[in-house]
């Protein structure tokens, strides 16, 4: 190593004119560099492929084939009813990757490296959430294809269908920022994993994702009707034309699910983007 260095230095390979970093930072270019890096990571770790591709296929097949015959939904079939629920659950779990990713990068000291570079302060978070959105989109496409194979159909036309997909991804993107902030506050990435399961599983199961809320016992039913996951699933379900004739609750989020999801997503972004960026500019490996 030393001899090689000496050789290079002899030929003035390291001119000490003190080359500095470029003069401008640019949020799009910095964020793209981080997105590129995160996407490479997805490409090289099989865990992510399993999560993004195999798990959605498994969920669609399990739920539609196992419960398909035993759960009845008025005016439609269970496979149609189910798909929006699976989409909702999968994109929510996908968003937790942003928290895991930030916690892992912080632990590895990579955030410290980034923070000593002349980057835009929002670039790392933007690159993180953008890469996770890309992974979530891949999951969505896989689930849609699997769903179509097992007999799921959307009935409100292609625009409404695309609107439903966009709404699911928007909500998940906004939730990514919440998770990214949490990821910078926990001590280890494992905390994110465990907490996600502890919180998201009850949240998706006490909702209308897999069963009809009106079949739940009283207190659970009230919870399910006000659960943001229910609003998300309800919104997607109505845009896919998969609601059937099941009675709709009087609860506000159930009557205006699309508006609720839009407002909720915008609020999440408005609150958590600034919080996460501020946190980022003060965070460092301990």
């Amino acid at each position: 190593m030393t001899t090689q260095l000496a050789r290079h230095t002899d030929t003035a390979h390291l001119p000490h004119g003190h080359r500095t970093g470029g003069p401008r930072w640019s949020l799009p270019s910095d964020a793209w560099t981080i997105t590129w890096r995160n996407l490479l990571k997805f490409k090289r770790s099989p865990d992510y492929v399993v999560f993004a591709v195999l798990q959605p296929i498994m969920f669609v097949l399990l739920f539609s084939q196992v419960y398909g015959g035993s759960i009845r939904v008025e005016g439609t079939n269970y496979t149609d009813y189910l798909m929006a629920g699976i989409f909702g659950q999968t994109v929510l779990f996908g968003a937790t990757f942003s928290g895991y990713g930030m916690a892992q990068d912080l632990k590895d000291g990579i955030i410290d490296r980034f923070r000593t570079l002349p980057m835009h302060p929002a670039a790392v978070l933007l690159g993180r959430t953008a890469a996770d959105l890309a992974l979530n989109t891949v999951s969505m496409i896989i689930m849609i294809l699997t769903g179509l194979v097992v007999g799921w159909r959307f009935h409100e036309g292609i625009l409404a269908f695309l609107g439903g997909v966009a709404l699911l991804l928007l909500f998940s993107y906004a939730f990514s920022w919440v998770m990214a902030l949490i990821g910078m506050m926990v001590r280890t990435p494992e905390v994110i994993n465990n907490a996600s399961f502890m919180i998201l599983f009850p949240l998706t199961f006490i909702s209308n994702a897999f069963v009809q809320a009106q079949n739940l016992p009283g207190p659970l039913q009230a919870f399910a009707n006000w659960n943001p996951v229910s609003a998300l699933v309800q919104a997607a379900r109505s845009l896919f034309g998969n609601l059937g004739q099941s009675p709709v609750s009087d609860a506000l989020p159930m009557r205006y699910p699309i508006a609720m999801v839009l407002i909720g997503s915008v609020l999440m972004l408005a609150i958590f983007v600034p919080l996460a960026v501020t946190r980022y500019t003060r965070t460092s490996r301990r």
């Binding site: 890096r37 990571k41 770790s45 590895d108 000291g109 990579i110 410290d112 570079l117 002349p118």
Partner: peptide, 16 residues
């Protein structure tokens, strides 16, 4: 940040 280089106590490299 534009004029300094730094290497922390732990090799902050991306494994992947």
């Amino acid at each position: 940040k534009r004029v300094v280089g730094s290497s922390g106590q732990y090799a902050a490299v991306d494994e992947n």
